[in-house]
Computed example of a mutant assay.
Amino acid sequence: MIKPFLLLITFLFTTNTFAQQDGYWDKERSTSKEIKVSARDRIVVKIDDLPVGTTEIVYRITLLDENQQLAGSLVSVLKSIPDQTGISQGSAGAVFVLSKISGDDKCTYAIFSKEDLAAQYKDSGKTLESCLIQNELVSKDAKRLSVDKSSCLSNDNGSLWFGFESKNWIMNQKIILEVVPWIDKKLSRGWSLENRKFIIDQCKTSNLAQKMSNSDSFCVCVLDKIQTKYKFQEFQKLLPMERSKVFKDAGDVCLSETNTSVTTSTDLRKEASVLIKNNKYGAAIEKLTVIINNGKATVLDYNTIGSCYLLTKQYGKALKYLQDGEKLDNTELLIKLNLAHAYLLNDNYKEAKKIYAKYKNQNVTDSLSWIQKTEQDFKAFQKAGIQNEDFERVLKLIKE
Results as ranks from 00 to 15, higher is better:
L50K: 01
V52R: 03
G53R: 01
G53P: 07
Y59T: 03
I61D: 09
D65L: 11
D65S: 15
Q68L: 08
L70F: 09
A71Y: 08
G72E: 11
V75L: 12
S76Y: 09
V77P: 00
L78Q: 06
S80V: 10
P82D: 13
D83K: 12
G90Q: 13
G90V: 14
V97R: 04
L98C: 02
G103S: 10
K106Q: 14
A110I: 04
E115D: 11
Q120S: 09
D123I: 12
T127F: 02
T127P: 02
S130R: 11
L132M: 06
E136S: 15
L137I: 11
V138H: 14
V138Q: 15
S139C: 05
D141K: 03
A142C: 14
K143C: 02
R144H: 02
L145R: 04
L145N: 00
S146D: 03
K149E: 08
L153M: 13
N157Q: 11
G158S: 10
G158L: 02
L160G: 07
L160T: 05
F162K: 05
G163Q: 10
G163P: 10
G163L: 08
F164S: 08
S166F: 11
W169E: 14
N172W: 07
Q173D: 14
K174M: 12
V180W: 09
P181W: 07
K185P: 11
L187W: 09
R189K: 15
S192D: 07
